[in-house]
């Protein structure tokens, strides 16, 4: 089963595309995910995903009015709406400074409602299922380029402003004294995140985006000993789940997003359990030494 997966991987174009997309998303998702977790915004990917879905439903609606362009490339409006969602979150956040979650609940509800309305108004809804759960096995070349460009831009931002991104994320108040313009940072970060979420939407679906971003990081946090190691471990876990998940999705013909996320969860459980066992051993060792 595994062998035929490997041969198909390199003989079938769609498999190679899935792998390329998966590997790139496997870096992007936890990289931004770690910053999102530091900033205690774990819920944000879901929120932006719902707004991205509004963009897609509006695309379908427009194409049923005759603008067929939008039917082929619904992701553009998806990205645009995701950015609008991000700006709305920032807007509401200013009114509920200490309750960031409230702003997200408002925006996610609005996103869900608007998507439902536009999907209902559109005559052909295409594969609504795909936008809910995603499918990495059906991605096109155009999508691969889109991820590549996104990965390029995000990497450049991290290479040139990585220090500032980390500093603001841990401590917004003090960032000012490092000469960082916090509002501009928040704006750029929100736009970057919105784009990444929209790009993830195609592969993971609106319901599984935040799992791809957050769960590898949750596992990495358990064993990382520094910011750098935690982020690297998260990316390794994420890649592992993409590879194994793809294989499972292909061999068992199950949805790819679901397979990837399930592997992510298994990794998280294994990490948590292993850590528990190691800690228990350490404690019993200390106890024995004390008895001696």
């Amino acid at each position: 089963m595994f062998l035929s997966f490997i041969t198909d991987l390199f003989q079938q174009d769609f498999m190679l595309r899935a792998l390329t997309a998966g590997v790139m998303l496997g870096i992007l998702a936890p990289l931004l995910g770690s910053i999102v977790v530091v900033r205690r915004l774990s819920f944000i990917a879901d929120t932006l995903g719902h707004f991205s879905l509004v963009g897609i439903s509006v695309s379908l609606f427009l194409s049923s009015l005759g603008f067929s362009y939008f039917f082929e490339k619904p992701l553009y409006l998806g990205i645009a709406f995701s950015v609008i969602g991000g700006l709305l979150i920032e807007f509401f956040r200013r009114s509920y400074t200490n309750y960031k979650e409230i702003s997200m609940v408002i925006v996610i509800s609005l996103g869900a409602a608007l998507s439902a309305i536009f999907f209902a108004l559109a005559s052909k809804t295409g594969s609504l299922y795909q936008y809910l759960f995603g499918s990495i096995l059906t991605v096109t070349n155009y999508y691969i380029y889109l991820i590549l460009v996104t990965l390029g831009i995000v990497s450049l931002l991290f290479i040139f402003f990585g220090k500032q991104i980390v500093a603001v994320s841990f401590d917004e108040t003090s960032a000012k004294f490092l000469g960082i313009n916090v509002s501009i940072f928040q704006l750029i970060f929100m736009i970057m995140l919105s784009v990444v979420v929209s790009v993830l939407l195609e592969a993971a679906g609106v319901l599984l985006i935040s799992s791809m971003m957050i769960i590898p990081v949750a596992a990495g946090m358990r064993i990382g000993w520094s910011f750098r190691s935690t982020t690297i471990i998260s990316i390794v876990f994420s890649e592992l789940s993409v590879l194994v998940g793809l294989w499972l999705a292909y061999s068992l013909t199950i949805p790819s997003g679901a397979a990837i996320v399930s592997i992510n969860i298994i990794i998280l459980l294994v990490v948590a359990l292993t850590k528990k066992i190691i800690n228990a051993r350490r404690i019993s060792k200390i106890d024995k030494n004390q008895i001696k």
Partner: peptide
Amino acid sequence: NFNYEFPITVSELLSVS
């Protein structure tokens, strides 16, 4: 205002600051 739970070492924090 500081987000503690995520791992970051003292020298990493000082370096990004």
